[in-house]
Computed example of a mutant assay.
Amino acid sequence: MRIIIYTGKGGVGKTSMAAATAVKMSKQGKRTIILSTDAAHSLADSLGMRVGSEPVQIGENLWGQEVNSLRETEKNWGAVQGWLKVLLNKAQLTDITMEEMLVFPGMEEMFSLLQIKEHTQSGQYDVVIVDCAPTGETLRLLSYPNALNWWLEKMFPNERRLIRLVRPVAKFVNKIDLPSDDVLDSIERIARSLEELQRIVLDPEMTSVRIVLNPEKMVLAEAKRSFTYLNLFGFNTDAVIVNRVMPDEAGEGFFAYWRDIQRKYEEEIVMNFQPLPIMKAPLMNKEVIGLPILEELADIVFGGQDPSAIFYRGRTEMIREEKGELLLELTIPFVEKSDLNLTQTGDELTVDTGAYKRKVILPRPLLGRRVTGAKFTEDRLIIRFGDKNMVGRE
């Protein structure tokens, strides 16, 4: 079983890359489904054919699905939402937006991702390609099961017993409906499903994340931020795909200017994401719509490589705790210790190796912390951070 998740800033072409990969996989005889968990679906537009909220066969060995987040939320959260609605009605807290408020931020995206688990466990497919919402923050939601699991194991059994005891009294005295067993079962089922989903997507032998970006300043900054978070939460990023690269024959004048700008950021992309494999997709001379052009795009990007291969194993960034301090480890191959220089400006680190310069935007656990030391060993730069405080340039 193979799961490949495509993510990136909105508008970079990640849907096209995900669809191209799916088409290529199906042509290799692998039963492939591509599903979009993005609320603003564009998968059907990319494929050039209708795709529904349930898997629809769109070619030999190829299925497509645009996940209906509202329906998935109703399926998973309906019982809890119904109980909360009754509770608010009795408290006379009624409003036209009340039902929307009963679905917490990020919940719809999280329930959409559960489709990955269902397709993986169904046995109907060899490959699941995911066109993810346009940010790595969606994947960050998968870190929640750790807290949910602890709560269920430590607190849930006692809470259940307590609720059963006080439910009749609470309803008689305060006219409050405490959650029924159906509601409690629903909460437990959600937590267990998310825990299982987390296990699947964090398995580096099964799941890879691929970042799609354009050679532009703002897109590159977002991609670096997403990459940091993906490493922080343990996802295996196995490739970076630079999309819409202008060819050398772009011409003179206006297009030549943008071609030169792109070349500058292509070099920066290599410096920031090595040793990850970096693949390039050209700016095509026609609209990337329909199965034939998607297959052509995949052939250009992957060449003779199998798109379902795991192109890279390992985490190029990692945060760990040691003796009360937080350590950030960065993989920096092919450099000498004497060539390294580290500076901190606010919540951004700059690692200068002479020929290469890499900027690292600190993830949330390291925000506001000052660098207290660093060492370089076995191609890894290990940076120590002290207690939280305001940081300046060092």
Score class of each variant (00 low, 15 high):
Arg2Phe: 01
Ile5Arg: 02
Tyr6Pro: 01
Gly8Leu: 00
Gly11Asn: 01
Lys14Glu: 07
Thr15Ile: 10
Ser16Pro: 00
Ala18Trp: 09
Ala22Asn: 01
Val23Thr: 08
Lys24Phe: 02
Ser26His: 05
Gln28Asp: 10
Gln28Pro: 04
Lys30Gly: 01
Arg31Phe: 03
Ile33Ala: 11
Ile33Trp: 01
Leu35Met: 11
Ser36His: 11
Ser36Val: 01
Asp38Ser: 05
His41Ser: 00
Leu47His: 09
Arg50Asn: 14
Val56Glu: 07
Gln57Thr: 15
Glu60Asn: 09
Leu62Met: 02
Leu62Ser: 00
Gln65Thr: 06
Gln65Lys: 13
Glu66Asp: 02
Val67Ala: 08
Lys75Cys: 08
Asn76Met: 15
Val80Met: 12
Gly82Ile: 03
Gly82Arg: 11
Asn89Met: 12
Gln92Met: 06
Pro105Cys: 06
Glu108His: 13
Glu108Trp: 00
Gln121Ser: 12
Gln124Met: 11
Tyr125Gly: 13
Val130Pro: 01
Gly136Pro: 04
Thr138Phe: 07
Asn146Phe: 04
Leu148Phe: 05
Trp151His: 14
Leu152Asp: 02
Glu153Ser: 14
Lys154Ile: 10
Glu159Val: 15
Leu165Gln: 14
Pro168Trp: 14
Val173Phe: 04
Val173Met: 05
Asp177Gln: 03
Leu178Gln: 01
Glu188His: 10
Arg192Ala: 14
Leu197Cys: 11
Ile200Ala: 14
Asp203Gln: 08
Pro204His: 13
Thr207Asn: 09
Ser208Tyr: 05
Ser208Thr: 07
Arg210Ser: 06
Val212Glu: 03
Ala221Phe: 11
Ala221Pro: 04
Arg225Leu: 08
Phe227His: 03
Leu230Arg: 03
Phe233Glu: 09
Phe233Ile: 10
Thr237Val: 07
Val240Pro: 13
Val242Arg: 01
Arg244Gly: 05
Met246Tyr: 03
Pro247Cys: 07
Glu252Ala: 03
Ala256Trp: 05
Arg263Ala: 11
Lys264Asp: 15
Lys280Met: 04
Lys286Ile: 00
Ile289Tyr: 12
Ile289Asp: 01
Leu291Ser: 02
Asp299Pro: 01
Gln305Tyr: 15
Pro307Ser: 14
Pro307His: 12
Tyr312Asp: 02
Arg315Phe: 10
Glu317Thr: 08
Glu325Ser: 15
Leu326Thr: 06
Thr331Val: 13
Ile332Cys: 07
Phe334Gly: 10
Val335Cys: 09
Glu336Asp: 13
Lys337Arg: 15
Asp339Trp: 13
Leu342Met: 03
Leu342His: 05
Asp352Arg: 03
Ala355Glu: 14
Lys357Glu: 15
Val360Leu: 08
Ile361Pro: 11
Pro363Ser: 02
Arg364Ile: 02
Ala374Gly: 08
Ile382Pro: 10
Ile383Arg: 00
Arg384Glu: 05
Gly386Asn: 10
Asn389Lys: 14
Val391Thr: 12
Glu394Cys: 14
